[in-house]
Design a protein around this nucleic acid. Structure first.
Lengths: 352, 352
DNA sequence: GTGAAAGCGCTAACAG
DNA sequence: CTGTTAGCGCTTTCAC
């Protein structure tokens, strides 16, 4: 009897029919129970669950995705660095995605990767995702991908062109502004900026915030020094800034650079905060324990991720509705010992 | 005429039949081309590709997974922290997974999460993955999950019980041993250890390596101080250790703690490295720029991830074969300024 | 409240 | 080298 021999000797992994048979219901009812659909009597529900439990049944997500056309997953494109900022954001995104009931797929773009964001997005599309998060992108010129799922860009990128792309700021500009104002409030005439690499939108945001703070008070805007986020680049910048006696306050675009900067300043005999005040950005774990403890602003990664995901999920599940209004992320300045009043206070003028 | 009206007004997204029709071949041939199967003439291949391109065709991974029984994805369970070590490992894993031709799905277990690793693994199983990587697990007691896919535990965990579970060390014990020996070689009679939380296997490995180095030279083993990876805990430990004049060398289980420790030591008037030498672990980005620049050991995250993935992919694709032999990850000690000879050298004895 | 039938878009197995 | 025939395990649609 050569009747329906299964394609392989698939021994195990029960399917919903098996559960149905055991529970004495139809396969469709099992499906209803597992999807929390209404109109299933409590009793049937219980029987189905018991049967499923006994068999060790697990919904097959591939079959579900095929039949429903939805994967219940979102993909995230990250930069592939373990830098504190991007890594923290990624963790926040994971949590937000899971809380929203989706699965997370991750693809990195390494800086300098020829395929870049486009390649990463393509790969996500190949995998099948219901939505895409682009985290802290860098400027690769205009990126235009034919995407039919909603995309949210966390950290400003007017350069991503897609039918359903939304941009959600991470509030870095505001944070940068607060950092700069802190220095100004202390009595510094102006504030220098040690910027991040300007290919990163995150770095541009911070620069914008710094610039806005200065402009709002009519202060002169010193030349920007650009680093690459690393402490080494901060150190190099520090050697350069140390030579300029006009420098009394510096806002660094991240804590790593701030730490390198402080070291160079100290080596050059310009004590922090006695001669130069420094504010960092991120509040990395060691910020409170370096010498001197670093004044910095903390980024609300979790809040940003949640907010972004709220928008994305909305776009996925209610495509016909308008996007809900965005909430501003909280701002937190952490004042420690790397900032102080300028040594020789004069009445703060508008010029030196 | 109410003939075959599609279930929705599915407008677009071409399927392989559409490509086949356009290319003038059978659907199966399209499948062959997209799977790089042999025995397709170059000409047909070209025509199919052209047709696919024209239509903007993309293989449907859900259908593929359903039909083939393989998802071509691996899941990773991480701890959900942005700590430098775990975050770096995750980035390494992403790269290794992608290089191996798989997609990556990520689920975090937050420490203290009731569901823990078990819950994370279940969630991955629900999503459907061909293999699972458990990254830097912590001890939650014996974890036994009914898993039918291969599992690799990166960072030693005899507590994970599954039919096809492999453990791949990250070499932390060896690195810890090298760090300790560096201090001993400098002439310190013994080395104290500022350990990580012992629920983490990563912390235990380091402790083991430290212990082994001491034992190999017959040195006394001082009481261990345990921190929680944070600089704050390192600081607390530092206050405690500063009070003990017998402490001349400390091996800290990560750089963050080492930095907190150094600060506490300095505040207590015990200069580093004049009075106390300190070695860290990880080589975080700022390690070279704190005061004093930190001697530390660098973890070979990429190598560990690659090695682990090699084993996992082998287990997935050649389940019948034995696992290939493991390669040892490289060891790299970075000597900077936080370590020196003990101040008053006596002939190194075996006891005080 | 529940069930039967008809696919979702692909790969497996085998025939040519 | 290429095509045909069956499903993979679920959701959808519609009937009861």
């Amino acid at each position: 009897m050569t009747q329906s021999v299964p394609r392989s000797e698939r021994a195990s992994t029960p399917r919903s029919v098996d559960v149905a048979r055991l529970a004495g219901v139809s396969q469709k009812t099992v499906s209803r129970v597992f999807n929390d659909e209404p109109y299933v009597s409590a009793d049937v529900r219980r029987r189905v669950m018991a049967a499923a439990d006994e068999l060790g049944y697990r919904l097959n997500s591939a079959a579900r995705a095929l039949a429903s056309g939805r994967t219940r997953s979102v993909g995230v494109v990250t930069l592939g660095t373990a830098l504190y900022g991007p890594a923290s954001l990624l963790m926040g995104i994971e949590r937000a995605v899971r809380d929203a009931g989706y699965a997370l797929r991750v693809v990195n773009t390494l800086e300098g990767d020829p395929a870049g964001v486009t390649g990463a997005v393509e790969s996500l599309l190949d995998q099948g995702v219901d939505g895409i998060v682009i985290s802290e992108p860098i400027d690769e010129g205009a990126v235009a991908v034919q995407v039919d799922v909603p995309v949210i860009v966390l950290g400003a990128s007017p350069s991503f062109v897609a039918p359903r792309a939304v941009t959600a700021g991470v509030g870095a500009d505001l944070l940068a502004r607060v950092a700069t104002e802190h220095l100004l409030d202390l009595g510094h005439e102006t504030v220098h900026h040690l910027a991040g690499p300007q290919r990163w939108f995150a770095a541009r945001d911070r620069l914008d915030g710094w610039r806005a703070a200065l402009a709002a008070r009519g202060r002169r805007e010193p030349a920007v020094v650009e680093g690459d986020w690393s402490a080494a680049s901060g150190y190099a910048a520090g050697r350069q800034l140390a030579a300029d006696p006009g420098v009394t306050a510096v806002f660094a675009a991240n804590d790593d650079m701030a730490i390198g900067l402080i070291r160079a300043l100290a080596e050059a005999g310009r004590g922090v905060p006695e001669e130069v005040s420094v504010v960092g950005f991120d509040d990395i774990p060691v910020a409170a324990f370096v010498t001197p403890p670093l004044t910095t602003v903390r980024q609300p990664f979790d809040a940003v991720a949640q907010e972004g995901l709220r928008l994305l999920v909305h776009a996925i599940e209610k495509p016909e509705q308008d996007l809900p209004p965005a909430n501003d992320p909280p701002v937190e300045l952490v004042v420690r010992a790397s900032t102080a009043q300028p040594r020789s206070r004069t009445i703060p003028g508008r010029d030196r």
